[in-house]
C-alpha cells in the first residue's frame, strides 16, 4: 500500500516489477490517497506526503500480532517476516502451549512454558541457538 494511484501501480507492475517477478505481483497493490489508512496505522509522514516502510502481521481473527516500521532508505527482510508468521502460526496451532525462543526457525526446538521450565531455560536453550540456522 502506498499513496500512488492504482493506475501507477499497474504501470509499475507492468514496466518493472513483472521483470523481477515472473507474471507480475500476485497480491493486491493498494492505493491510499492522502494517507488515510497510513495515518490510522501510524506510518504516514504528513510532511513528506508518503508512507514509511510499515509492515503489519494480522492473524486470521484480524488481530495485529506484530509490526515493524523502517525509514525509506532501508528495505525489509522478507524472509524474517515469513519466519515470524511461521512462529505465530505455531503458537496459534499449539494454543500458546509452545513458544518460540530467540532465533527460532521452523524445525528448531520450541519452549513449553510452565512451572517446570522456570529457571531451567538454560538447560534447553543457549545463545548459540539464536545465531545458528
Amino acid at each position: 500500500m502506498s499513496v500512488d494511484s492504482m493506475f501507477v501501480h499497474k504501470m509499475w507492475d507492468e514496466t518493472e516489477l513483472s521483470k523481477m517477478v515472473p507474471g507480475g505481483i500476485p497480491f493486491p497493490m493498494l492505493s491510499d490517497a492522502a494517507g488515510r489508512v497510513g495515518s490510522t496505522y501510524g506510518v504516514y509522514d504528513p510532511e513528506a506526503g508518503v508512507e514509511t516502510r510499515g509492515r503489519f502481521i494480522i492473524d486470521p481473527d484480524g488481530i495485529i500480532q506484530g509490526y515493524e516500521v523502517l525509514t525509506p532508505p532501508v528495505g525489509r527482510n522478507v524472509a524474517e517476516s515469513l519466519r515470524q508468521i511461521q512462529a505465530f502460526q505455531l503458537v496459534r496451532k499449539t494454543k500458546g502451549k509452545e513458544a518460540t525462543p530467540s532465533g527460532w526457525q521452523p524445525g528448531k526446538p520450541t519452549l513449553k512454558p510452565g512451572i517446570d521450565l522456570v529457571g531451567k531455560v538454560w538447560e534447553v536453550w543457549n545463545t548459540d541457538m539464536a545465531f545458528k540456522d
Binding site: S2, K10, P28, M29, A48, V50, P60
Partner: peptide, 26 residues
C-alpha cells in the same frame, strides 16, 4: 487497488481466516 490485470476494491476484513502481511512503502 490493482491485482492481476484488474482494478478492484479491497476490504481488510474480507481476509478473515487468512494470515495477512500488510506492507506500506514510500
Amino acid at each position: 487497488g490493482y491485482q492481476n490485470g484488474k482494478f478492484l476494491n479491497f476490504k481488510l476484513s474480507d481476509y478473515r481466516g487468512k494470515w495477512v502481511l500488510l506492507c506500506f512503502y514510500p
